[in-house]
Design a binder for these strands. Structure first.
Lengths: 142, 142
DNA sequence: CAATTTAGTGGGGATCAACCAACCATTGGG
DNA sequence: CCCAATGGTTGGTTGATCCCCACTAAATTG
């Protein structure tokens, strides 16, 4: 009985997709960015200015897709794109003040949505869940 | 620091997608079915014969997509499709003996793959993870 | 200098999930 | 009997993800 729901991966995936969607929907209205844009902003916020190349590698997306991602962020004035003086092929992507503001807002949105989606769990359980999935995620194998 | 990885939903989603992909890849070669087909077979295995309607609702997919899903399973002889004598609009979808065999094989594959993907967790941790995500999943969300 | 490599660009394309409108056959209510 | 609702079907669209190739400008190597 309950073959499907007995599969951890299945439930995990469903919960993950639902959570992702909830966040994406909220982000689309509030700071008006996509999940990938948030990912890029977060990467920049964590590690400081970087080349598109590095960002793409960090997020695990194709460089050509990163270009289009940057186009959107630039158009919204959330990042600035200057040539790296030491290697003029490279760009130096940095968060603008407005980008930082949006990132902060987005973080708040995520926190808020997660509060709702993880609501059936206690505080300790949420921490445990985070620890467990992180453990899997960081596992070297594949 | 680590803004992205600090978001439970983000990691959850990544792990879910990776796990789902791993299983889908293996299912494609071994019993030669898709994940959605496994889901349908599992539903049938758990709850016995059902109408396409009910199956679609149970899996949360569109009825029109369920039609095409059934087409594949029928072509492979994994399910049988008879009109419900009590309501001739309805079908009565049942697992064929071969469908049951495939379902059993698929279950084994899933178990095997999960053994690998959840490998960084102890047995107790796996049970905890399953319990936690199930708790979220069954919550009256949205 | 010539050849190669690298960062970024632009233009796709394949696949899949999700959804929608229109339609047929059947049922059930009035 | 007429009509609305339901189960199923067909033929789409949309959006997201992923991936690939050809091209430029700049840097690096020989």
């Amino acid at each position: 009985m309950e073959t499907l729901l007995g599969m951890t991966t299945f439930v995990l995936h469903k919960v993950g997709v639902a959570g992702r969607r909830a966040i994406a929907d909220r982000l689309a209205v509030k700071p008006g960015i996509t999940l990938w844009q948030l990912a890029a902003l977060a990467e920049l916020g964590d590690q400081g200015p970087a080349a598109q190349n590095e960002l793409a590698a960090g997020l695990g997306i194709d460089p050509s897709d990163m270009v289009r991602l940057m186009d959107g962020l630039l158009a919204d004035g959330l990042v600035s794109r200057d040539r790296d003086p030491e290697d003029r092929r490279r760009y130096r992507i940095s968060l603008t003040p407005q980008g930082k503001k949006v990132l902060t807002a987005a973080r708040a949105v995520v926190r808020e949505v997660e509060k709702a989606t993880l609501q059936p769990l206690s505080q300790a359980e949420r921490a445990t869940l985070h620890r467990l999935v992180t453990k899997i995620h960081q596992s070297p194998v594949k």
